[in-house]
Computed example of a mutant assay.
Amino acid sequence: MTENAQPEQAAPEFALQRIYIKDVSFETPNSPVIFNENWDPESNLNLNSDVKKVGDNLYEVVLSVTVTTKLGEKTAYLAEVQQAGVFHITGFPDAEMGPMMGAYCPNILFPYAREAISDLVSKGSFPQLLLAPVNFDALYAQHMQEQQGQAQQQAKSH
């Protein structure tokens, strides 16, 4: 019997190398006056992620989480955390790299960012803020659909 001579493909590897806060900001522009107001806030959550190759099969993923909380027109606080991680990723097909960077890695980073935001808010003397879990898989899929729609629009306009 003859064997097919095919090069062995390395097994996919995924390893978390490091998790760290890259940047943090907390602002309370209307303190201490805001503490006397009736606490019925409206919060806005903004998420963003960025990926940078930092070495052979090493990627830095930065998840930016910004929470703006207002009482009426007054900003009670603005909390922003850039939670980063360095991931060793190799052996995955190109089609899987996008979802890994855009959904899987942010999923790993989000609990750390959520804890940092909660700590900042508490240390600012505001009631505890618990951010709900985020479905990064759905956000990534939505982002990809939006990009496809934009590409189709550009193709039609040319």
Results as ranks from 00 to 15, higher is better:
residue 1 M to I: 15
residue 3 E to N: 15
residue 6 Q to D: 14
residue 6 Q to C: 03
residue 8 E to N: 12
residue 8 E to M: 11
residue 9 Q to G: 06
residue 10 A to Y: 03
residue 11 A to D: 12
residue 12 P to I: 05
residue 12 P to A: 00
residue 13 E to Q: 15
residue 15 A to E: 14
residue 17 Q to F: 02
residue 17 Q to T: 09
residue 19 I to Y: 06
residue 19 I to W: 05
residue 20 Y to T: 09
residue 24 V to F: 01
residue 25 S to G: 09
residue 25 S to P: 02
residue 27 E to N: 13
residue 32 P to W: 05
residue 32 P to H: 06
residue 33 V to F: 13
residue 33 V to I: 13
residue 33 V to W: 12
residue 34 I to N: 07
residue 34 I to F: 04
residue 35 F to K: 13
residue 36 N to L: 15
residue 38 N to F: 10
residue 39 W to Q: 08
residue 39 W to G: 09
residue 40 D to I: 12
residue 41 P to M: 08
residue 42 E to P: 02
residue 42 E to Y: 05
residue 43 S to M: 12
residue 44 N to A: 09
residue 47 L to Y: 08
residue 47 L to T: 06
residue 49 S to P: 01
residue 53 K to T: 15
residue 53 K to G: 08
residue 53 K to Q: 15
residue 54 V to Q: 03
residue 54 V to W: 02
residue 55 G to M: 00
residue 57 N to R: 02
residue 58 L to A: 04
residue 62 V to Q: 03
residue 63 L to V: 11
residue 64 S to Q: 11
residue 66 T to K: 15
residue 71 L to A: 12
residue 71 L to C: 11
residue 73 E to N: 09
residue 75 T to C: 05
residue 77 Y to A: 04
residue 78 L to Q: 07
residue 78 L to I: 15
residue 78 L to F: 13
residue 79 A to W: 04
residue 84 A to L: 00
residue 87 F to P: 06
residue 87 F to N: 05
residue 87 F to L: 06
residue 89 I to D: 04
residue 91 G to I: 06
residue 92 F to E: 12
residue 92 F to C: 08
residue 93 P to W: 04
residue 95 A to W: 00
residue 97 M to W: 04
residue 97 M to P: 09
residue 98 G to S: 14
residue 98 G to L: 02
residue 102 G to Q: 10
residue 103 A to I: 02
residue 103 A to T: 00
residue 105 C to P: 05
residue 106 P to K: 02
residue 108 I to T: 09
residue 110 F to Q: 11
residue 110 F to R: 11
residue 110 F to H: 11
residue 111 P to K: 10
residue 111 P to N: 11
residue 111 P to G: 10
residue 112 Y to V: 09
residue 113 A to G: 14
residue 113 A to H: 08
residue 114 R to A: 12
residue 115 E to H: 11
residue 115 E to P: 04
residue 118 S to Y: 08
residue 119 D to Q: 13
residue 120 L to F: 01
residue 121 V to P: 11
residue 122 S to F: 06
residue 122 S to Y: 09
residue 124 G to Y: 02
residue 125 S to D: 10
residue 125 S to R: 12
residue 127 P to K: 00
residue 128 Q to V: 14
residue 130 L to V: 14
residue 131 L to K: 07
residue 131 L to W: 06
residue 132 A to N: 14
residue 133 P to Q: 10
residue 134 V to M: 07
residue 134 V to E: 04
residue 137 D to L: 04
residue 137 D to P: 03
residue 139 L to T: 08
residue 143 H to S: 15
residue 144 M to S: 09
residue 145 Q to A: 15
residue 150 Q to D: 06
residue 151 A to V: 02
residue 152 Q to H: 03
residue 154 Q to N: 13
residue 154 Q to C: 02
residue 157 S to Q: 15
residue 158 H to I: 10
